[in-house]
């Protein structure tokens, strides 16, 4: 048995994903977001999280998946990694579960259209598969710069 890992389970398109609980600051309902000009399209803007201004990105847009309008189920998961606080818009987030570190397998090259470098692995959980995210790669700022340059 490896170490137990507590993860927050959230949905994106038709897949289930996981983020370690200790990296998540809070899960919020959709809130007003202020647009920030001259940013990549997946950056939705900034929100007021109890007095702190937090950037919000659409995780589907970040992974190059098709973005959809937010629904009643949509949530903003605010994560804190490498001194950065960022909110992720996800389709739903309603579960916390324990997984065994040993049950995380290396990810295949592409999962659900998401490049492997964004993934930490695939966790098998009874009959479900959880895609674990590599947060520091998802929040890689160099990539934003590259994206901006590509657009320009």
């Amino acid at each position: 048995m490896g170490e137990e890992l507590k993860v927050i389970v959230f949905a994106l398109a038709n897949e289930e994903y996981g983020i370690e609980v200790d990296k998540v600051r809070t899960v919020e309902r959709m809130a007003p977001i202020t647009r920030v000009p001259k940013t990549p399209p997946f950056v939705k803007g900034v929100m007021n999280l109890r007095g702190v201004v937090v950037p919000v990105i659409d995780l589907k847009g970040r992974f190059g998946l098709k973005e959809t309008e937010p629904t009643e189920q949509s949530r903003i998961i605010v994560v804190a990694v490498n001194d950065m606080e960022v909110g992720f818009i996800v389709d739903a987030a309603n579960d916390v579960t324990d997984i065994d570190e040993d049950a995380i397998d290396q990810p295949p090259e592409v999962v659900g259209g998401i490049k492997a470098k964004y993934l930490r692995g695939i966790a098998k959980l009874d009959d479900r598969l959880l895609i674990m995210l590599n947060l520091s790669e998802v929040l890689n700022k160099n990539e934003i710069v590259q994206l901006e340059q590509m657009e320009a």
């Binding site: 007003p32 202020t34 920030v36 900034v46 007021n48 700022k141």
Partner: peptide, 24 residues
């Protein structure tokens, strides 16, 4: 704007208005 979004030449930061919304 948080370290994820560095300030640009035009946007110098953000503030929170009386209605709780963020204004650049």
């Amino acid at each position: 704007l948080g370290s994820y979004l560095p300030n640009t030449d035009i946007v110098a930061g953000a503030t929170i208005l009386g209605d709780g919304q963020v204004a650049l």
